[in-house]
Amino acid sequence: MSPINYVYLAALLFTIGAAGVLIRRNAIVVFMCIELMLNAANLTLVAFSRMHGNLDGQIMAFFVMVVAAAEVVVGLAIIVMLYRSRHSASVDDASLMKL
């Protein structure tokens, strides 16, 4: 199977993730969609690495996974704190950033 199909799949996953981020209100779902996009990116990296016969992309994918793991920890902690203080996990309720 041509590696290009992985790229198509990654594009699909990314679109699903992006749409999820834009459409869903639940912070957990938004968060999962972000993870989906990250992994879509990982998939492209690996696919391209394969296509070019170069391992750099795979190494980069590892980095991304590590960063994503760290991000999950922080992100989930924020969401939990948010839920505790507001009794809601809707991102629209957390609009404190505007003036």
Binding site: A18, V21, L22, R25, V30, V91, D92, A94, S95, L96, M97, K98, L99
Partner: peptide
């Protein structure tokens, strides 16, 4: 700057 994370995401995309 309306404070809605999702609208920021839209502008990013």
């Amino acid at each position: 700057q309306n404070g809605f994370a999702r609208s920021y995401a839209v502008s990013m995309f």
